[in-house]
């Protein structure tokens, strides 16, 4: 090995070490957010840090450490799978939290679901009142 290659090795090691430490700090930030934030929705905001950016940094560290090109598609597939599943579960948890009133309403700046819920409730009441449940 020529000295340039070993210098490059050292830089790649340093970069992946930084990625790993920052990815671990994302997990720590999520834990601190879980402990300190007041209600479910703000805790959900903290919980997404290690799931997306933290996992991306750690998978990039794996790719840098393996020093081969063929691992990158596998790592990208693993990360994209996480990207596809995390929003769905966060949507379900947030919706269940909204319905069971596990939120501090005074902390919200906008509540777009409120109008939808009101509209659906009014529609249900109207259909119950007239008696015909015919859908257009």
């Amino acid at each position: 090995m020529n000295p340039e290659a070993t210098a490059l090795d050292g830089w790649i090691d340093l970069l992946s070490a930084v990625f790993m430490v920052v990815g671990a700090v994302m997990s720590l930030g999520a834990a601190i957010g879980l402990l300190r934030f007041p209600d479910l929705l703000s805790r959900m905001h903290a919980a997404t840090k290690p799931q997306v950016l933290g996992l991306f940094l750690l998978l990039a560290a794996i790719g840098l450490q393996m020093r081969t090109w063929w691992v990158w598609p596998v790592l990208v597939v693993a990360w994209i799978f996480q990207l596809l599943t995390v929003p769905v579960s966060a949507h379900m948890v947030g919706r269940a939290g909204y319905r069971t009133k596990h939120l501090h309403r005074e902390l919200l700046t906008a509540d777009e679901l409120e109008a939808v819920v009101q509209k659906a409730a009014a529609k249900t009441a109207r259909e119950d009142g007239t008696g015909d449940g015919s859908q257009p």
Partner: peptide, 19 residues
């Protein structure tokens, strides 16, 4: 939510081990 975070931490630890 906290269990989800715990699973993410576990996955991150596995990633660090692999790296």
């Amino acid at each position: 939510l906290a269990t989800d975070v715990l699973l993410a931490i576990l996955g991150g630890a596995l990633c660090v081990d692999m790296a």
